[in-house]
């Protein structure tokens, strides 16, 4: 299996305490990896290292030459008042290549096809604020897919969305992975998202564990990751993680 990105002993600090320490992680072609950990554990920093828009203060990031990466940010970070339509957002993906202000007919066709594929046909001229949470998430996914990425990186793709949207996102990502796109995402949602992925990395300043859900979703690994006791149940073949507040029996 070819390695797309290799994080070799990376550490990072934003000037204060170290947020990531000596992380070794390889992302292979065909990976579908979820990064979990508490808030402030370094998940986003790890993703930014993978993306290449943050350099480690220590260690090396090796990236396969000419690797096409696309990124879907947290929808909560988007400025929804920005005057922009759905098709304008998707067309941004070609910004690095093109100098002409207007999109070509073939670009417009490609955008229409992508939006149709993601169930957003007919929404081209809508302002992004006018869409539902799930539709908004799919617009940014369409922008990422416009680049025809080999590796898709998503930051909290199910954060702040309802159950139905979460299901839609999981299905979409599963389909993309099945069609050959490698996927790396960060999430807080262990039961709704991470438990369904083939590979999970637990992070809390350092890489605690990497493995299948059955390997890493254990009480001891989760306690080391989250710094609090957590209970792991199995129900109908599914792993369920619950908080286990101390002192309550």
């Amino acid at each position: 299996m070819t390695s797309l990105i290799e994080l070799d002993g990376i550490s990072h600090s934003y000037g204060g305490p170290t947020v990531l320490e000596h992380v070794h992680l390889t992302i292979d072609e065909g990976s579908f990896l979820g990064v979990i950990g508490p808030s402030g554990s370094g998940k986003t920093t790890l993703l930014r290292m993978v993306l290449g828009n943050l350099r480690p203060t220590e260690g090396v990031v090796r990236r396969r030459a000419d690797l096409r990466i696309a990124y879907v940010p947290q929808v909560e970070t988007v400025n929804w008042n920005f005057p922009i339509t759905v098709s304008e957002v998707v067309l941004m993906a070609g910004a690095a290549k093109w100098y002409r202000p207007r999109a070509t007919a073939s670009e417009r066709k490609r955008v229409a096809e992508l939006l149709e594929q993601l169930g957003l046909g007919g929404f081209e001229h809508r302002h992004i604020r006018e869409l539902s949470g799930g539709q908004q998430q799919r617009v940014f996914l369409a922008r990422a897919l416009h680049r025809d990425p080999e590796l898709l990186v998503l930051d909290e793709p199910t954060s702040g969305v309802d159950v139905r949207t979460r299901h839609e996102v999981v299905h979409l990502l599963t389909d993309l992975h099945r069609n050959g796109t490698s996927v790396v995402l960060s999430t807080h949602d262990i039961n709704g998202l991470a438990a369904h992925l083939p590979l999970i990395a637990c992070v809390n300043r350092e890489l605690i564990a990497v493995g299948t859900p059955a390997e890493v979703l254990t009480s001891s690994v989760l306690e080391r990751t989250y710094g609090a006791p957590m209970e792991v149940l199995e129900h109908g073949g599914m792993i369920l993680v619950t908080d286990s507040p101390m002192g309550i029996e």
Binding site: A70, Y71, N79, M92, Y99, P101
Partner: peptide
């Protein structure tokens, strides 16, 4: 603005993703 329309728009709307995308 004409020559860099899309790059400026991307960098204005979403600088982090623009950076990853090669802008």
């Amino acid at each position: 603005i004409g020559a860099f329309y899309r790059k400026l728009l991307f960098a204005t709307f979403d600088p982090e993703v623009a950076d990853v995308t090669g802008v």
